[in-house]
Amino acid sequence: MKISVIITLKKDVLDPQGKVIHQALDGMGFDGVNEVRQGKYFEINTNETNAKKAKDKVEEMCKKLLANLVIENYKIIDTQ
């Protein structure tokens, strides 16, 4: 079973990389961009066949390693 997770910075955490990307987009002529926030995406392939169990396991992984909960949020976006 493959599980996808995205990790994003919390709202009030400064994201200088996102800011620079935003500036670059402005410079390239992409109008109307209000904000860019950069995050991380993981695909985790496990032997687990039970979707609920797989999701719980990945949630534990997020809490223990993949995300730093002081500054980041995680979201399991897909199980297949």
């Binding site: 955490v13 400064l14 200088p16 990389q17 620079v20 730093n68 002081v70 500054i71």
Partner: peptide, 16 residues
């Protein structure tokens, strides 16, 4: 900070 022995985190420097 990653072990939690001291609080907080260290982010990328403000001006990259």
């Amino acid at each position: 900070v990653e072990t939690g022995l001291v609080p907080g985190v260290l982010l990328r420097n403000k001006y990259l």
